[in-house]
Structure formats: C-alpha cells, structure tokens
Design a protein around this nucleic acid. Structure first.
Lengths: 231, 231
DNA sequence: AGAACCTGACTAGCATACAAGTATGCCGGA
DNA sequence: TCCGGCATACTTGTATGCTAGTCAGGTTCT
C-alpha cells in the first residue's frame, strides 16, 4: 500500500487490459507515476478492480514501449528518462518528420488542413499555462500534417518514440521551455510549407526538434534522480 | 490438432514466454507459419510444453509487432502481408538508414569494420541458395554499419519495421530476386562509404531498398492469398 | 425439402491458486 | 555493538479453472 494510491481513475467497474495499458502509459508520460517508482501488479489490480492477468498484459506492452522494466521476482519499475533513448527517439522523429514536412512543402496542403493547423496553434497559445493541453495541441499540429498527406501510420511510429521524451517536456514546460518560441516555430514551419519552400520548412522543423535535446541536457543536472545518464 | 504440428522445436522441457515469442516470430517471418493461418493458444502451449499463460504473453508482443491479430472469442491469426505496412516499413527504414549511411560516409569507418562488412558480403555470396543464411548475412551487413557509428539502438527500430517485409524476401528470394544484384549493391554501398562520398552512398542505398516495393507488387498477383491489398 | 433452432466443441478474456526467487527485519550469539 | 542466520512477507512467473462468445452440424418442425 504505497501512499501513491490516489489514482483510481476509471468508473467503478473493472477495466480491460488495454484500458489499463492506455491509462498507465498516460500516467507515466504525464509524470503522475515518477521515473524510478516501483509498481506492483497487485496494487494495479486493486486500482483497476481486476486480477493480475490483465495488469500483466498491460505491463508486457509497456515494457515493449520501454516505459517500464521488470526485474524478475524483484519488482516492476517506471524506467528513468534515458538520455540514450531520448537521443534515439529524437533521431527517429527527426528523420521521419523531416521527410513528412518536405513532402508537405512539395505537394502543398489543402485549405481545410491549413485551418486545422491554425486552430492547433491557437489552442496551443491559449493553453500556455496548462502543460497537458499544450502538449495535446502540439501533437495535433504534427499529426495533422502527417494525416493530410496520407502518412498517418507513419505518425504512429513517431508517437511510439515520442513517449521517450514527452516526459522531458512535462518536466520542463512549466519553467524552462519558452512556450512563445515553440509557437513561433510552428508558425514559421506552417509559413514555409505554404510558401512551398521545402528547404526552409526542413530547417525550421529541425531547429524545432533540436530544442528537446538541449532541455534534456539541462534537466540532467536539475533532476538527476529522474534521469539515466547512459551517454 | 491441425496438421501443422510438425514444429516442436525446443528441447524436451518447457519454454519461457520470451522464448516462445522469439521462436514464433521467427517462424512467422520465415514463413513456416503462413500468412492467414490460424494459431491456437492451446496448441502452442502443447508445442512449447507450457500452459496458455506464457503463450498469451508472447501473443501480446506479436500483436504489438503487427505480425498476428486476435479476434476475441474467435481466434488468433497470422496477419497477411499488408501492402500498407510494407510501404510504411520501407519508408521508415529508408529514412533511418539513409541517415546512417550518410553519417558513415562523412565520418568514415574503421578498418576493422570494413573487414567485418566484407566478410558479411562474402557470406552472402556463399549462401546464395539458402534463404535463411542469406538473410542473416544481409542483416549483419546493415547492422554492422549502424553499430560502428554507435547507432546500434537505431537499428533495433529498423529491425521492428523490417519484420513487415522480411516475409516478402523469403517469398521472393528463391525465384524472383536476383541475388547477384543485391550483393553487387552492397559492394557499391561499401565502396561509396570508403570513398567518403555521402551523396553516392545515399543513392546506392536508396536503390537497394526500393527493390522490396517492386517485388511486393509482383507477389501481389502471384500470391494473392498471402497478401492484403490495402492500398 | 427447407428453414429455424438447439447442442456441443471450439475460441479468447479473466480470476484464482500455486511455485520460486528476493528483500527485510528480528533474534541469538559472540 | 556487530554479525550471521532464519522466518516471513513481499515480488513476478506459471498453471489451471471458469465465463462468455462464436461457429458448425445435426435435428426437428413446418
């Protein structure tokens, strides 16, 4: 019975395996479950009003995502933020999203898509204080572009990797990261796409994505207990 | 008791969940389990001399990999080769490996790495008839480059995606694909890297990776029962 | 003959019980 | 005080039984 049982979310009836997966994943990314914290199949079963079986299924998937790890007969733990994983995730996202944005700038995007993107930017500006809503709007911006080009399933790959550094954003958003800068970058990216200037779009996006690495480095010193300095 | 019980691999003692995962995954990619074929938790339990529990864990992971899918209360099936998934996988692999090979051509690689690569090419030439050994050598070539640059964990992302079109290679290798061409392309890539010519290395690799898409299209007509024509 | 229905043998999802390994804290002895 | 050893309460891994849904085939009724 760790004191952290203050998260019982769903209704008053048992949750399915995939609901447990989605909920716990969210809790990890949103830092409601802290890096390094120990989980317990039994406690999770209590929280979701199920037996250990569906909990274990969720855990298997979270291990695949690299968000938790299991030491047999010892316990399951939320993995700390690995610098190595962050770098890998950024590399993958960089490679894929640059290809996407280039495509967008070359092919152009529909007026309807443009208005959705502008709405996402507005929502982001408005949600400046609220880290969760801000992140949702940020995701919407990037996902919308991929979807508009029929590359939606590419975004799902990005989303997998993204989990690795979303936690960094939630750590840094309240204080460190200049929200206005991120929004301005989104505007610049959109402008470059509208101008049909692939090279400019690429360089804007690359700059946009590189911020994460810097903040990760910074957090390493301010939150050493949450990070894993594996080069 | 389907007639396909001729695969009882491990020793005479029960296999663990992750052994089951690895074995079944291999069997799917190597086409020993055919696309569309129905699996059974019970039968797999018999084959690996375990209960359904570890089998289910393996199945969860294979579903995540997109290699099987489960219809609740109906059955679990080996997913057919999805053209859409193949395209996505190739796109991801293309984006990542081009970045890797560019890095290799810019930074250069050690003499030791070169000899490993040459060994891989030789092994591939030698294994011309044997599809499994050929594929192993092919993987070794690409993985060696990534490892040499400290980008080994990038390759693991590629490997995940690769599963989606490895089956195509096993379908086509015996007949369709010109083995000599693939080997020659490897040589050309290596030469470009040694010449420190990033642009050339990229274009060689891009050509190398584009072959899969063509053969996939071809197989669509010769093996319609194994494929999923989802655009 | 044809169609509706029922029955039994499958399926996967979940709950529960057991096994085996690990950490912890207490107790006894030096 | 300090150290060794054991009992106990954890942990995850696996086995098994139960539930609910699906499908196929045979039977019965019209």
């Amino acid at each position: 019975m760790s004191g952290k049982a203050l998260l019982f979310r769903p209704g008053h009836e048992p949750a399915s395996a995939s609901e447990i997966y989605a909920t716990v994943r969210r809790d990890i990314i949103r830092l409601r479950l802290r890096p390094g914290e120990q989980l317990s199949e039994k406690d999770l079963g209590l929280r979701f009003m199920t037996s250990r079986t569906p909990v274990r299924e969720a855990i298997v998937r979270l291990v695949d995502d690299g968000l938790i790890h299991v030491l047999p007969q010892r316990g399951t733990f939320v993995t700390r933020i690995s610098l190595r994983a962050v770098k890998r995730a950024r590399f993958v996202r960089n490679a894929l999203e640059l290809a996407i944005i280039r495509e967008a700038a070359e092919q152009g995007i529909s007026d309807q898509t443009v208005s959705v993107l502008e709405a996402a930017i507005a929502a982001q500006e408005e949600a400046a204080g609220d880290a969760e809503r801000f992140t949702d709007a940020d995701d919407a911006f990037h996902r919308t572009i991929a979807n508009a080009l029929g590359l939606g399933d590419l975004w799902s790959v990005v989303e997998n990797q993204k989990a690795q550094f979303d936690r960094i954003r939630f750590l840094s958003l309240p204080n460190v990261t200049p929200v206005a800068l991120l929004v301005a970058q989104h505007r610049a990216i959109l402008a470059a796409v509208l101008a049909r200037d692939p090279a400019q779009a690429e360089s804007m996006l690359a700059e946009h994505l590189s911020i994460v690495l810097d903040t990760a480095q910074g957090l390493l010193s301010t939150h050493p207990d949450l990070m894993l300095d594996d080069l």
